[in-house]
């Protein structure tokens, strides 16, 4: 039985033009993508701004409507089932947002923020609710006296942990984390990443980790899908992607990661130059004539790349 699967997902937005604003074309934000999450793994969607990774995440949790395709979870297609079924499934798929400064309601106490999903989905008594909130706040490493403070009284890292506590209260199976640490400083980032790994073990969570930062993705994720212009250009395990990247775009992304080892600089600069040249010259090897991404072809059992 598949745990979670996305089949032929498309999210199109109309482009209107002319005097009467007719639909003249579509922005293909997500264009026919397929991927599967295995229970307990961390799957990364990687790409640059505008590649469709965030739209994919938002469609999976139901914040954005799919144009077509299936999102299978618990043997149900979330894009087609009824309200009640959706509501039940939503409990089990929660989202953590990028910006801890704007994703928490500034007028609510941390207690209310964390308790909100419980109030929406479960009928708990006051004391049960309090117990639950305290339990999860303690899990994310926040002290009891922070319960009745407001978001602005916390640092970015603490806020992000409140955001995670809120996502955890309904004991979800899947957490979609959209750039969860990119707004945080390096030391705080480490804190949140460590902590995400801890709770993953403890609660048996599956992560869909959306990020542009290949360094963090290498650290966190087992399998990776690289997106470009709404499509997958490559998918594979961490080793497949980092040790044996096939598509020029993946190689370009990896070569762009700033290198900490100063001895490697000459090499990496050269590598970047070569890749850039290849990208200009052998474009037709990797892209169709109209610049679109080709279909994925298997490279190995776990590894797929969009090559001719």
């Amino acid at each position: 039985m598949t745990f979670f699967k996305v089949n032929n997902l498309k999210v199109y937005y109309p482009i209107r033009g002319g005097i009467f604003r007719r639909v003249v074309n579509h922005v293909k934000a997500v264009d026919n993508i397929n991927f599967e999450l295995k229970r307990g793994e961390t799957y990364a969607l990687v790409g640059e701004s505008g590649c469709g990774k965030t739209t994919t995440g938002r469609t999976v949790v139901g914040l954005t409507k799919a144009t077509s395709g299936e999102v299978i979870f618990n043997n149900l297609d979330l894009t087609k089932c009824n309200r009640k079924q959706i509501r039940e499934s939503r409990r089990e798929i929660q989202m953590v947002f990028q910006d801890p400064y704007s994703s928490l309601n500034p007028k609510k106490t941390v207690y209310d923020i964390v308790a909100e999903p419980l109030r929406n989905f479960e009928n708990l008594s006051k004391s049960e609710e309090r117990e639950q909130v305290e339990y999860f706040m303690q899990k994310v490493g926040m002290s009891r006296d922070s319960l009745f403070k407001y978001p602005h009284q916390f640092s970015g890292g603490q806020r992000q942990r409140v955001g995670i506590a809120r996502a955890l209260t309904l004991k979800p199976k899947i957490i979609i984390a959209d750039e969860p640490v990119s707004a945080l400083d390096a030391s705080v980032q480490a804190q949140v990443l460590n902590f995400m790994q801890d709770i993953q073990e403890e609660f048996g969570l599956t992560y869909l980790f959306i990020s542009h930062d290949l360094g963090i993705v290498r650290h966190m994720c087992n399998r990776i899908g690289i997106m470009y212009k709404g499509k997958f250009v490559e998918e594979g395990t961490r080793e497949d992607i980092y040790e044996n990247p096939q598509h020029i775009y993946t190689r370009r992304l990896i070569a762009s990661i700033p290198e900490l080892d100063t001895d490697q600089h000459q090499n990496s600069e050269l590598l970047r130059k070569n890749i850039e040249e290849e990208y200009q010259k052998e474009n037709d090897k990797y892209f169709n004539e109209d610049g679109s991404v080709m279909d994925l072809k298997p490279v190995s059992d776990t590894h797929f790349a969009a090559l001719r």
């Binding site: 390096a186 030391s187 980032q189 480490a190 804190q191 990443l193 460590n194 790994q197 360094g215 963090i216 290498r218 650290h219 966190m220 900490l260």
Partner: peptide, 17 residues
């Protein structure tokens, strides 16, 4: 600061906090 960064060398390990 340096040890809190994910890198090839600390893959799978906990980051320094």
């Amino acid at each position: 600061l340096l040890y809190s960064l994910p890198s090839k060398n600390n893959q799978g390990e906990k980051l320094h906090v």
